[in-house]
Nucleic acid binder design. Structure first.
Lengths: 180, 180
DNA sequence: AATAATAAACCGTCTGGTTGGTACAGTAAA
DNA sequence: TTTACTGTACCAACCAGACGGTTTATTATT
């Protein structure tokens, strides 16, 4: 694959993410993505042979980005759990919205398109369990962190920004104590 | 409203839930629900004037059921947090799958159809905060409980049944200690 | 008889996907 | 250097089917 194709594919994914976060997960259609990206529908399907392939690529990129962000924090000395919590704090609202809607779109399209996400979750859990010695509180903290953005994804979070902030700080303190 | 109408409306909701959990959130269409329920599409739209109305009713019923289940536990002396955790434990897999897919369908259809769910979450949070004296660990436990079924909803849970069971037991123990 | 409930055929729009084709860069033969 | 050829990238037009919703007609219930 040459450079031009790579750029185009990236632009298509970008457009798909934009559609998802601006118009909602249910509006991610080939027509709409084509319109927003500026390419034709035929062009889209040249690079991604089906809608499923497009959504899969979209999800995969988000998973990769997330993993990279956590690994960077861990390279700076953080434990896996703290890195997860911190990475949640630092993500821009736009990125979180993108992620949320993309995942929602994938889930609605077909259960199974989220397998890469599940795999990523599993890896994260293993790391955290290994570091904490299977401490259940560490697992609870990890789940709580997940809940924060899963709730945001569905716009059902009962917490306002300030409450969320305070809670994340508490979680980070507990994480530091648990992971020596 | 007539008794006959009530029964029909309930059957339609039931069929919609069945479609959602068996075929996936994205496949909840009027035609499909009509086929499964045994009524015609015209019949559906007589009782629920739009797809949106149908999905709204579906979500509302789940919210009501859940609230009822928790209130029953609380009437037996449980605190709000323990009731939430216990209610998660006791729900059948079928009900959880129904709930998950219905909510997913609603979210994909239109953000905002989940407002009743958000409101329910808010109430629950208020109750738990009031009972625990704003203890952050109680909030974390609540979030973890949410995460358990949000993850199931997307089939991205990294925990197997046994791990989940043990974790819920731990959470229940902590809840009992926090809520005297 | 009056009204509530259901069915069936239909409509316009949007869906994912296919088609045949164009523009163009590279390249190998003349 | 021209020519012929090849593969990549893209597009406009189109298709069959599914979609949400309407209309009209028919049957039950009261």
């Amino acid at each position: 694959m040459n450079k031009r194709a790579k750029v185009t594919k990236a632009q298509i994914i970008e457009a798909a993410l934009a559609v998802a976060s601006e118009k909602g997960a249910g509006k991610v259609t080939l027509d709409e993505v084509a319109k927003v990206s500026g390419f034709s529908k035929g062009g889209l399907l040249y690079h991604y042979p089906s809608k499923e392939a497009l959504i899969t690529a979209m999800v995969q990129q988000l998973v990769d980005d997330n993993a990279a962000s956590r690994q960077q924090l861990m390279a700076q000395g953080d434990d896996a759990l703290s890195a997860m919590i911190k990475s949640h704090v630092h993500l821009s609202e736009q990125v979180q919205c993108n992620t949320a809607m993309a995942i929602l779109a994938a889930a609605a399209e077909q259960p199974g398109l989220l397998n890469p996400v599940q795999q990523a979750c599993r890896h994260l859990l293993c790391d955290i369990n290994a570091e904490s010695g299977d401490n259940p509180e560490a697992m609870v903290l990890m789940l709580a962190c997940d809940a924060l953005w899963l709730q945001d994804m569905l716009s059902i979070s009962p917490l306002d920004a300030e409450q969320k902030d305070q809670l994340l700080q508490y979680m980070l303190r507990r994480a530091k104590e648990l992971m020596p």
